[in-house]
Amino acid sequence: MSLMAMLALIISSTLVYSAPLIFTSIGGTFSERSGVVNVGLEGIMGIGAFASVVFNLTFADTLGAATPWLGLLAGAVVGLLFSLLHAVATVTLRADHIISGTVINLMAPALGVFLIKVLYGKGQTAPIAQDFGYTSVPGLSKIPFLGQLFFEKTSGPAWLAIFVAVISWYIIFKTKFGLRLRSVGENPQAADTLGLSVARLRYSGVMISGLLGGVGGAVVAQSISLNYSASTIVGQGFMAMAAMIFGRWNPIGALFASLFFGLSQSLAVVGAQLPGLNNIPSIWLQIAPYVFTIIVLVFFFGKTRAPKADGVNYIKAA
């Protein structure tokens, strides 16, 4: 294999595996910036994957090549609705955030597989007809060398995810909404005193995480697993959570952490084809993201501080 072909293979598969992590980890960032811990990302991704596959199977004939992109939208909407469960439990009903997130994770595969059995009479769906596959970015792919590596036969959703990361960074750190969102995550009492609605801002944080988590799940389903079953989402949501922490609750940080985790995941898959890497047992590449997250938490703890009121319910004085 030529060096060029090797690099192209690594880059494109890294982008494919990173895309869902980028979307979901940024979703988690919005939720936790508003002060709601979201360990339910895994479940939200699962329900997004479910929705996109059902959408894809239903409309592939009429919508053709646009189906997977509209499937993202389906995943986004259903993910958002599903995340309301977490928002209602934590913000309105004062539930423990970890318990509520665990409920989300228990509920999603149960509900998804239940509905699949009701709809199709079996525990997993048929493979989808229209998937993301590989696309070339028009214009940019004509750039010599770099175009061939990054923009030819690449993952469309990954470039969308990178775009979303930049936008999210702007929203969180440069807009009024972002400032307010962060303020209820740091000191809800002060924010409340200044006339902000803590509940409304926390609802929006959780709902954005539902939207982006749903998209993340839809990307997995339509570019990696290509069908839906109980094992479509196994761990990607938790890995996205790790990326959010690794990225220090910052969308750009989450982007790079996701790219790094995506690289390590893709090396575990394509590593066998690459000279030099095929000597490393794939187990080390498989566990690397999780080990690195623990190391970061332990050794850089002073710098990886969560929002101050993350996971703390705000009970307004009557």
């Binding site: 665990t102 509920m107 595969p109 149960a110 509900l111």
Partner: peptide, 22 residues
């Protein structure tokens, strides 16, 4: 009835335990 119904029931039970404020 698909088996997964009981997992939905279990998750709902824990939801209500967690949201005991309700």
């Amino acid at each position: 009835v698909p088996f997964e119904l009981v997992d939905i029931v279990t998750a709902s039970i824990i939801f209500f335990v967690g949201a005991s404020y309700l």
